Simulated assay, not measured.
Amino acid sequence: MSTVALGFTLLFVLITILVSIRQKLGLEKDILIGSVRSAVQLLLVGYILQYVFDTEKIALIALILTAMITVAAWNAGKRAAGLNGIRRRIFMAVAVTELLTMGLLVGLSIIEAKAQYIIPISGIIIGNGMLVSGLFLNQMQREVQTASGEIETLLALGANAKQAIQASVKRALKSSMIPTIDGMKTIGLVQLPGMMTGMIVAGASPIEAVRYQILIVFSLTSSAAISGILLSVMSYRLWFTEDLRLRRTSSK
């Protein structure tokens, strides 16, 4: 794509701004800021990745993956900012998920051990881990509010923290995984996924693109389960005080 052709895509931003002005939505500033930030961030990432792909330095790959996981943990942690240590637990859950998933992909020679494959696929896995973590914490907020009577009754009857909140954790975990599972059911029918579309536009065979997309879909399913389960196991105790009273928090 030429620079001139890329410049024409600003028409889409202009249309969005005009709609906001016409409907008096007041989103013009946010649209402009978002457009500039996304363009700058993507260009910066593009140049960084080009350098990493050319050098294939393991330290740089590890640094990029660590930064991605850190940002993901920080963003997902906003859903339960009142819980001390929640971001650290999200980081650990997503990091373990990334290590397990990428270890299998590389160890079984499903993908080559090159930055060209590791970083983009890791980004998808980490991003999905962030999404699942955020959804889990959101649902746990609701569960703690709506099922507080049930949880406190169980505590009064002698249940420990895990026993008292187990049903709520299961419901929250199930809710956090539904988008990933629903996406599997409609993929290729409702929309062509991003990776597959990008490969086809770049000139790859549709069959080859489909193979890589299947890899991503199956990886996302397992990573959603792993990250959700790990986070639930590591975080359920945070919903209680030291003396086993239910803690209520609010998202930001």
Rank of each mutant, 00 (worst) to 15 (best):
V4D: 12
F8W: 12
I15F: 14
T16K: 13
I17M: 15
I17V: 15
V19R: 04
Q23L: 14
K24D: 09
L27V: 03
I31W: 10
L32A: 12
L32M: 12
R37L: 10
L43K: 02
I64W: 03
L65W: 08
M68I: 11
I69D: 08
V71C: 10
A72N: 09
A93I: 02
E98T: 13
I110P: 01
E112P: 06
A113K: 07
Q116Y: 07
Q116C: 03
I118P: 00
I125M: 02
G127M: 03
V132F: 01
S133F: 01
G134C: 03
L135W: 00
M140A: 03
R142E: 11
E143K: 01
V144I: 13
T153R: 15
L155Y: 06
G158W: 04
N160S: 13
A164Y: 02
A164R: 08
L173F: 10
S175Q: 07
D182T: 06
M184R: 06
M184S: 04
T186H: 06
M196R: 07
A202P: 02
S205T: 03
Y212V: 07
Y212M: 04
I216M: 08
I216H: 06
V217F: 12
T221G: 14
S223M: 05
S223E: 05
L230W: 08
L231F: 02
M234R: 11
W239H: 09
F240V: 04
T241S: 11
R247D: 14
R248K: 15
R248G: 15
S250Y: 09
